[in-house]
Design a protein around this nucleic acid. Structure first.
Lengths: 340, 340
DNA sequence: CAGAAATGCGCAATCGATTGCATTTTTATT
DNA sequence: AATAAAAATGCAATCGATTGCGCATTTCTG
């Protein structure tokens, strides 16, 4: 073997004066090779410190054993949980996971997806960027029959596997819970309505009102991008109403928190005076005081399911697509619990 | 070209009745090919929907343009921040990032690292698992001259690039701060001492005591793996001492929080009765009540630096190793501030 | 206008592992 | 012992892109 390069099956073959084919088969436990030969080969492989070159193997097998994951931002709890869950399953199934973040920019997302294609990933798991509005880069995967799974933020017009949470039910349950707690005027901080997730949450909210014969009051619903600051602006606006709300369903935990801090500073008690519920069950929601009632989205499980699904597709060539809707869980904490 | 497989440079060559070499050179803008030919080739490549097969290219070039990152757990703010920063830099430099998590298990870490080797990553960025105590799998990278960068949790006995935070200074500053706040008996929840990070934090703590002529009391220092539960066990043990501490420097924010919750339930006031400081500035530490004083570790920046460093090594073959120590920042919040 | 120099391109080997088919070796059978 | 059958192994092509070397064509030089 060449001095400064890795040993290959040919080096092993030369050492034993046999052919590389035999070495390859032996290392893959092919029954056509006798046990005795296998043992000799494995011994030499060990002594040479041989490690198979996955690149070569992948090229020949036209399979990279790699799954691509694209998220808006790695450094966000929900997404990193999904990644963690997916990595977990993928690893156990012998797959490597390559990860990129779109930073919520369509241009970067397109780049990433194409690069993953060139890297011949066996499948792609993606939650699209907020900005993304063309989908040619994703249709490419469909066209080439490379498994594609959306999670959380899916593209309705692309028919493929999807894993989402039941945002509608989540919004519904939050609202019903607030009603059950005796709150009468329930406001809602909603996210961008072009994203199905936020759209569905709001619809769930509206449906719960309807079911309880509570008239829908548009002035109680504010739509923004749900940042901390926008939460403050929104709650100010709500509290300035002639009839301010006595409960607010916040589109995420971030705004729930900023709303709570604002109200606390105004001397308004939570949950006695105003009930607050968030969404997503961010780690902090459990530990702030008062703790924030919220909807748990099973990020880790979503990741696991996404990986399981895509691996089934990669390996079985199933041709039917499914949309898995994971149930959400309402976690009742202090911020909305004034009965018990 | 074969019906159900991707077009290759040979397909382009056949189409134009030229050789694959020319196509390859044209697509790589090799000056040996005339402009006219290049244009023709690129036109055909486009019309065929050609995408280079990175696997083949990587095999031939013995370079995967891939950087491996191994962290204990993806789904943790500090680590996901590092990943995010590293991905950012790597992407801009044309590298793909593959990620795995060791779950703090040595066995899995060894597996992952070997698999990354087989995948021929061009470099490896790693923060070792708590459990890891043999380093052959990492020495392999050194032996083969594949760039290796440690971040946060480094291995002293392996000479390579390292990016760490100044844990010693962090521990020192936390302790000095508690002393400045008038706390007299300062305990410490330390992490596994085989990890330099925790070892250094503890040494910083001890040094600050020494500088302030406070005798070191071994019974005030508890070493465990800093989980939430172990935080509780530890604080119980400390409070059961004949002379319990009036302040605790917790090795991370997780234990700081569980300690605080335990004390609160016991009716002990923070920071009046006991001062608490954590480490790492987890997102929740700012928003819990009382908010937790802590040490900020610049995760995103560490990731960026790590990626920059490893890319320089990959591309320049620098042979000198450096240890970059990033400064830490003491963030004083409510849990330890009883003077102002 | 012959010869030199530059330009443009192709041949074939290479990267390392895999595999269909062929060949050799061993074992079993008559 | 001869032959069939079974077992073990080798040959050579392949995956797709890259590149050193060489050949052919064009352009330049004196």
């Amino acid at each position: 073997m060449n001095k400064n390069s890795e040993p290959t099956i040919h080096d092993i073959a030369r050492e034993l004066k046999i052919s590389a084919s035999t070495v390859s088969r032996a290392l893959n436990d092919n029954p056509r090779i006798s046990l005795k030969t296998k043992e000799k080969i494995k011994a030499v492989a060990d002594s040479l410190g041989y490690r198979p070159n996955t690149l070569a193997s992948n090229l020949r097998n036209k399979k990279s054993n790699t799954i691509g994951i694209v998220v808006p931002l790695i450094n966000r709890h929900f997404f990193s949980s999904v990644i963690s869950g997916a990595e977990d399953v993928a690893y156990k199934a012998g797959y490597t996971v390559v990860i990129s973040q779109s930073n919520d920019l369509a241009a970067k997302e397109i780049n990433i997806v194409q690069s993953m294609f060139s890297n011949r990933v066996d499948g792609l798991i993606i939650s699209i960027a907020m900005q993304t509005d063309t989908f040619e880069h994703l249709k490419l995967f469909r066209k080439k029959h490379i498994p594609l799974v959306f999670f959380d933020r899916a593209v309705p017009e692309i028919e493929t596997d999807k894993i989402v949470v039941d945002d509608f039910a989540g919004g519904y349950r939050v609202t019903q819970h607030l009603i059950d707690q005796g709150y009468k005027r329930i406001g809602h901080l909603a996210g961008p309505q072009n994203l199905m997730t936020y759209y569905d949450r709001k619809n769930g909210y509206m449906e719960a009102l309807r079911k309880n014969s509570i008239p829908y009051d548009e002035s109680l619903v504010i739509i923004n991008t749900l940042t901390s600051d926008e939460g403050v602006t929104a709650i100010q606006q709500l509290m300035d109403l002639p009839h301010p709300p006595d409960a607010v369903f916040c589109g995420n935990d971030t705004t729930a928190l900023s709303v709570m801090i604002y109200l606390r500073d105004k001397g308004i008690r939570i949950p006695e005076d105003i009930g607050i519920v968030g969404f997503s069950n961010e780690p902090f929601s459990k530990v702030v005081s008062p703790s924030i009632s919220t909807i748990a989205q099973p990020g880790f499980i979503m990741g696991q399911k996404a990986a399981e699904l895509i691996i089934r597709k990669i390996e079985n060539k199933e041709r039917t697509y499914q949309t898995i809707t994971l149930p959400t869980e309402l976690i009742i904490r202090e911020s909305s619990n004034r009965i018990n």
